[in-house]
Measured scan of single mutants.
Amino acid sequence: MTSCHIAEEHIQKVAIFGGTHGNELTGVFLVKHWLENGAEIQRTGLEVKPFITNPRAVKKCTRYIDCDLNRIFDLENLGKKMSEDLPYEVRRAQEINHLFGPKDSEDSYDIIFDLHNTTSNMGCTLILEDSRNNFLIQMFHYIKTSLAPLPCYVYLIEHPSLKYATTRSIAKYPVGIEVGPQPQGVLRADILDQMRKMIKHALDFIHHFNEGKEFPPCAIEVYKIIEKVDYPRDENGEIAAIIHPNLQDQDWKPLHPGDPMFLTLDGKTIPLGGDCTVYPVFVNEAAYYEKKEAFAKTTKLTLNAKSIRCCLH
């Protein structure tokens, strides 16, 4: 018999989150649709729960009410004593943790798909938090293969000092899905179709896995975050240069030392320094102006996964 890495157990509980950011409308629209008619997301033997994560922000069509829901799922915020004085999103995070967690427990949901849009030209993107997770690498390989020839990129946010504390991190297997470009507060049919297909293929993978299909060893190309880059700023902290036209919409493309990065209003080009080629992502993302992030630098690498098969009882 072929030796293989056996994944822990079959997958039982899956959640699909929309509206973690209330103005990213593809996930909101799909989740609302699936709450009314969820036939397309159901798979035999699998509990799939669509869920609106930040209903107040969705109602106002804004990213958040008090603070970013997708950055506060750490033990400090989840452990705060519940009171009306807490920011709305912290209270909501505790409610979500109660419903789908608790985080880092045996009772937490197996998989959470968190649906997002970006204003950046990132196409279909899967966000991975753990480079050693054979199950998710296999799932992402399946999704990428199923979507081809449509490109699907994998963004690895594993980093020693950049801690995200994402909404989906309460699950055993957290999956971020990011599709763009799409303006905030807008629905685009092409973007919706791409996100819908990503979810379909992900659920198909889980179904095949649960039925005992063995997935042979595989490898995927990923883009691992190195650092986030702020806009150049003046002495008052105001933005002093904008994304250069040569960099705009060039997510995932190589940016070499000396290539144009920013452009000042008086026409001066600010190039990339250093001696390493990087791959920019979230270029000129609207939501990241407040976070002082013009783009993120990534490096390209390959992740390998062992063969996996479900432990059938």
Rank of each mutant, 00 (worst) to 15 (best):
T2R: 14
T2C: 08
S3Y: 09
C4I: 11
I6T: 15
I6V: 14
A7S: 14
E9S: 13
H10M: 15
H10I: 10
I11M: 09
Q12D: 14
Q12L: 04
V14L: 00
I16W: 03
I16D: 03
I16R: 03
F17Q: 03
F17H: 06
F17R: 08
F17W: 11
G19M: 03
G19F: 03
G19N: 03
G19S: 00
T20R: 01
T20P: 03
N23T: 06
N23R: 05
L30K: 05
K32R: 11
L35C: 09
E36H: 10
E36I: 07
N37F: 07
N37H: 11
G38F: 10
A39G: 12
A39W: 10
E40L: 04
E40H: 05
R43L: 00
V48N: 00
P50F: 01
N54C: 00
P55W: 09
R56N: 12
A57I: 02
V58E: 06
K59E: 13
K59F: 09
K60H: 13
R63K: 14
R63H: 08
Y64F: 14
I65C: 10
I65S: 07
D66V: 01
C67Q: 13
D68E: 07
N70I: 03
N70S: 10
R71Q: 14
R71C: 13
L75G: 13
L75F: 13
N77F: 12
N77A: 12
G79Q: 14
G79M: 14
K80A: 14
K81E: 14
S83F: 12
S83G: 13
E84W: 12
D85R: 12
L86M: 14
P87R: 11
Y88G: 06
V90H: 10
V90E: 10
R91Y: 11
A93F: 12
A93E: 06
Q94K: 13
H98F: 12
L99V: 12
F100A: 04
F100M: 07
G101V: 04
P102S: 09
P102T: 09
P102D: 08
E106S: 13
S108Q: 14
D110L: 02
I112P: 05
F113C: 02
D114A: 01
L115V: 02
N117D: 09
T118E: 01
S120L: 06
S120N: 05
S120R: 04
N121G: 03
N121H: 08
M122T: 15
G123V: 04
C124T: 06
T125L: 01
L126Y: 05
L126W: 04
I127Y: 12
I127H: 07
E129K: 03
D130E: 07
R132D: 13
R132I: 00
R132N: 14
R132C: 13
R132E: 14
N133G: 05
N134W: 08
F135Q: 04
L136I: 08
I137G: 01
I137E: 04
Q138C: 04
Q138A: 03
M139P: 06
H141M: 02
H141N: 14
H141W: 01
Y142R: 05
Y142W: 07
Y142I: 04
I143G: 04
I143R: 02
K144T: 10
T145S: 12
S146D: 05
S146E: 14
L147M: 15
A148R: 09
L150T: 14
Y153G: 07
Y153L: 06
Y153C: 08
Y155W: 11
L156D: 00
I157D: 15
E158L: 05
H159P: 14
H159S: 14
L162A: 15
K163G: 12
T167I: 09
R168E: 07
R168T: 11
I170K: 09
P174A: 13
V175T: 02
G176L: 12
G176F: 08
E178H: 15
E178L: 15
V179Y: 03
P181D: 04
P181G: 02
P181Y: 05
Q182V: 13
Q182G: 00
G185A: 04
A189S: 12
D193Q: 11
D193V: 11
M195D: 03
M195P: 04
R196F: 04
R196H: 04
K197E: 10
K197P: 03
I199D: 06
I199P: 00
D204H: 03
D204A: 04
F205L: 00
H207C: 14
H208E: 15
E211T: 13
F215W: 06
F215S: 03
F215K: 02
P216V: 02
P216H: 05
P216W: 02
P217D: 09
A219Y: 07
I220M: 11
I220D: 05
E221A: 01
I225Y: 15
I226E: 09
I226C: 08
E227K: 03
E227A: 07
K228D: 06
K228E: 08
V229C: 07
V229N: 00
P232R: 01
P232I: 00
P232N: 03
R233I: 11
R233F: 06
E235V: 10
G237Y: 00
G237L: 00
G237P: 04
E238Y: 05
E238T: 08
I239G: 06
A240M: 12
A241F: 04
A241E: 06
A241Q: 00
H244C: 00
H244V: 00
H244P: 03
P245T: 00
N246E: 11
L247C: 01
Q248N: 01
Q248E: 08
D249H: 06
D249E: 01
Q250H: 11
D251K: 02
W252H: 04
W252P: 02
K253S: 08
P257V: 07
P257Y: 06
G258M: 07
G258T: 09
P260R: 01
P260A: 09
P260C: 01
M261F: 03
T264K: 08
T264Y: 04
T264W: 02
D266M: 04
K268T: 10
T269Y: 01
I270P: 00
I270S: 01
I270F: 01
P271G: 08
P271W: 04
D275C: 08
C276S: 14
T277D: 08
V278M: 06
Y279T: 00
Y279L: 04
N284R: 05
A286H: 08
A286I: 03
Y288I: 11
Y289I: 13
E290Q: 12
K291H: 11
K292N: 11
K292S: 10
E293S: 13
E293A: 14
F295N: 00
K297P: 01
K297R: 05
T299K: 13
T299A: 12
K300M: 08
N304A: 12
N304R: 14
N304Y: 12
N304D: 08
A305Q: 04
S307I: 00
C310W: 08
C310D: 05
